[in-house]
Design a protein around this nucleic acid. Structure first.
Lengths: 219, 219
DNA sequence: GCTTATCGGACAGTACAGCTATCCATAACT
DNA sequence: AGTTATGGATAGCTGTACTGTCCGATAAGC
């Protein structure tokens, strides 16, 4: 198939397909002549994945490229591919380490304690680590310590989720599909969890505060 | 205090403060002359909150303005303010309802079943509803049904989190602080939960797959 | 009282992301 | 043979989030 059909089948405009080709999100088609190329179902799949990561997962084009690179490279062992995919999907909050930042130091300690309590084997080099530290620090800086007190609860909930997710990922055969599924699951899972949290909040809020559900029309 | 000091105390440049004033994220200072105004600690707090929502929570300036509008309006009852804050912080995935979209219809059903199973009292008008439907539909469209099978787990985890969060919010006095805390908790909580999920995944992945932690340096 | 820094306000300009449009020589359908 | 589509390159567009510059007015230091 050529771009026209690829576009029709994927719902992505030809112009955007060309853009994704340029940006390396979509591998070039197989050449059938000096200026002619053919695409296959793999391209349709890939295109759908790109749109899912960008539109639903909210990744940037650059982050998407990073994720796909990890998915594609068969050299990389599974657990590392997952880690790398994770790393590229975790937005980096630079923060640039203000040396005497009390809030951040406290947050770092709080997270270290939490991890120790739960017996987690994690490395502070994981970008998620500094993201978490940043959030905790921000929260305490805003003068609210609720979130800090709920940290254990959050960690427990996420451990339960992660355990089942990792187990589900591991018990599969095909590496390519495994990595792909894990990546999509990680990225889309964030969005899904956030949405379910809001629905659960609405439910609990109705229960406790009475009245109608909170989120009528918004804006 | 005037802009210069406000800038120093908040770490936000004067130019950005002026921008936030123009965009209505920061209320104008109290006028002390035809072209002179004074700011107070409330402005410092507000500015910190703006940066937290934008930098850490990843909200756009427009979304931030919506959130703050809900926080500020004392007419709105608490549970509705929370809902509206929620609505504005839930990114709208337009989707524009393709009429015969099988995946979406199935996803809608799956979510309805889930909500019924758990006995949640939620309205499909909640923007989080259509976000969740969109994610589930995308997942099935990508040909993977793991996430769909994990839906119940996700919902359970989020219900546990939400129950404690709502309880924590309700038991406070001051309305303004309550709403503010809830908003910040909702927005920053998303980021924190995502980060903790990744850390938990790393831990579980190390346990199950052996080898080093997955997220060494990334990209 | 005079100088110099700072202020608020308005508006133009910048940087980047993510497309979108146009052009052109070739190739494919009809 | 003529219309339409293709690959490839490059220019342009739209939106977001600032940043820089200019202005006349004011405040602060001497």
């Amino acid at each position: 198939m050529r771009v026209g059909e690829l576009s029709r089948r994927s719902g992505v405009s030809v112009a955007s397909i060309k853009y994704y080709l340029r940006e390396g999100l979509l591998p070039p088609g197989e050449r059938t002549g000096p200026n002619q190329a053919a695409y296959d179902d793999g391209h349709v799949r890939r295109l759908r994945m790109v749109r899912a990561l960008i539109d639903v997962g909210g990744l940037s084009v650059a982050a998407t490229r990073g994720v796909l690179a990890a998915v594609d490279d068969p050299e990389v062992p599974l657990h590392e591919a997952l880690g790398r995919a994770q790393a590229t999907t975790t937005p980096r909050h630079a923060e640039d380490a203000d040396p005497d930042d009390e809030a951040r130091a406290g947050a770092e300690q709080a997270l270290a304690d939490l991890v120790a309590d739960r017996g987690w084997a994690v490395s502070p080099a994981n970008p998620a680590w500094s993201t978490a530290v940043g959030v905790i620090a921000t929260y305490t800086r805003l003068g609210d310590d609720d979130l800090a007190r709920q940290l254990g609860l959050y960690a427990e909930a996420m451990e339960g989720v992660a355990r089942r997710e990792v187990a589900a990922v591991v018990e599969r055969g095909d590496r390519a599909r495994t990595v792909e599924g894990a990546v999509v699951g990680t990225v889309l899972g964030d969005t899904l969890l956030a949405a379910l949290r809001r629905l659960a909040q609405e439910h609990c809020s109705v229960q406790l505060l009475g009245g109608r559900a909170g989120a009528d029309t918004g804006d």
